[in-house]
Design a protein around this nucleic acid. Sequence first.
DNA 1: AGAGTAACCGAACGATCGGTCGGGACAAGG
DNA 2: CCTTGTCCCGACCGATCGTTCGGTTACTCT
Lengths: 196, 196
Amino acid sequence: MTTAKRDTYTPESLLSVAVQVFNERGYDGTSMEHLSRAAGISKSSIYHHVAGKEELLRRAVSRALDGLFGILDEEHARVGRAVERLEYVVRRMVEVLTAELPYVTLLLRVRGNTATERWALERRREFDHRVAELLKAAAADGDVRGDVEVRLATRLVFGMINSIVEWYRPDGRGMGEREVADAVVQLVFSGLHRSR
Amino acid sequence: MTTAKRDTYTPESLLSVAVQVFNERGYDGTSMEHLSRAAGISKSSIYHHVAGKEELLRRAVSRALDGLFGILDEEHARVGRAVERLEYVVRRMVEVLTAELPYVTLLLRVRGNTATERWALERRREFDHRVAELLKAAAADGDVRGDVEVRLATRLVFGMINSIVEWYRPDGRGMGEREVADAVVQLVFSGLHRSR
DNA sequence: AGAGTAACCGAACGATCGGTCGGGACAAGG
DNA sequence: CCTTGTCCCGACCGATCGTTCGGTTACTCT
């Protein structure tokens, strides 16, 4: 067969270990020594699989960004009434966030110290802008309240959704992905008050 | 007079410079060399004013936490109907966030690598818990929807409020503190849909 | 004028940083 | 058997980390 047994590291399997450590200690707070201990191989062996620390970061944020931008290509995000497309995107964002949790977490914590980080920030801004346009269209349709500025509302809604990475943990049967998505959609569109 | 002219650094004025750099580069991504350049004094001179890098972090997060916990001691947060106390706390949180922006920003990005950071995380959790109890009481009064779990709703609302530090900038006349507070209260309690 | 001290500096400390290097263990294919 | 390539290692590189130290200004108080 072409694919032999894999009891050794691939760039991908090493990435999943690295991203976990990055999220625990922060990217800057993580040394290659930390990574080698978590992976169970020596520091120099890591360089057999990846070019360096920054490549691990780039691979991770790329994966997260691909997941997010993929949402916008889906049919329900492209056709239909703006407010319904918006609700679909919000729900799918929660799903992508939880499915690719460690990668998205890392993406959302990037600060911009290196070229890779600045590229990630730029692509994030682009995604935010695309969703803001959706909200703007929904407001123009009259399906969304007009007394809160679109740009401000977008930022607050993103803040709520993105904050999921700070506490959501998929393992223990604490909370389902569907339950979180439902709650977010409820709060974003109807708020805390008793439903009308 | 006792207070002479101050064209030199105090622990407080040095802190405001340090916190700004911490927020730009991240705490771990900031070296004492970075701080010395931003402050305009040599690296060793910093140690004349503060004990070290970690003390700067401790002073900063302490100031942020004092501001937040101070809210809970105010009269409107202690007496009255739970849902109204909750709205008051939410509004005051936005005010404290914007007033002490760099300090709260730093607090919200702490990861837990050192004892100081773990202490900050613990106190944050305590504050979150206090607000969660307020939301729970409002739900028991029937003033807040019951179909979204209290713990989940608290986390999402905190996520929205805390995300303000990611984009709010007080300088240019871009957006007023009052406008942000109004928008947050509107979205948290009534959501995006047209007001009932 | 002289003493005291707050504010600051350059040089250097041991430790750790991300990354390199030459080579060893081992399995596959001839 | 020997070669080839994958996977990994310990030792080491120059650079930078947070911090310390001895010493020099410059201002205040007597």
